[in-house]
């Protein structure tokens, strides 16, 4: 499970990661608790998956200026 602590654009992030499928890596939204969005992933390296998710958000026009934390549990 990876998580993103993100205060803004949560709906767009959920949509982006739910539809993410690159190099076989996928994310599925699990739940939202306050700022924390949790996603299931098929990746074995969760640290790398969290970094990929963060990079994917940062690559979006609406995501480039967001400040947020990505991690795994």
């Amino acid at each position: 499970m990876i998580f993103l602590n993100v205060p803004a654009q949560q709906d767009k992030i959920i949509e982006l990661l739910n539809n993410y499928d690159q190099d076989g890596l996928t994310f599925d939204f699990v739940d939202k608790k306050g700022l924390k969005l949790r996603f299931k992933t098929n990746a074995t390296d969760l640290d790398a998956a969290a970094k990929t998710a963060k990079a994917a958000v940062k690559a979006e026009v609406w995501g480039s200026m967001l400040s947020f934390q990505a991690g795994f549990e």
Binding site: V6, P7, A8, L35, M65, L66, S67, F68
Partner: peptide, 11 residues
């Protein structure tokens, strides 16, 4: 900006 989750430093 930081308060609303926007990178204040970058903006």
């Amino acid at each position: 900006f930081w308060f609303f989750g926007i990178h204040g430093g970058n903006v």
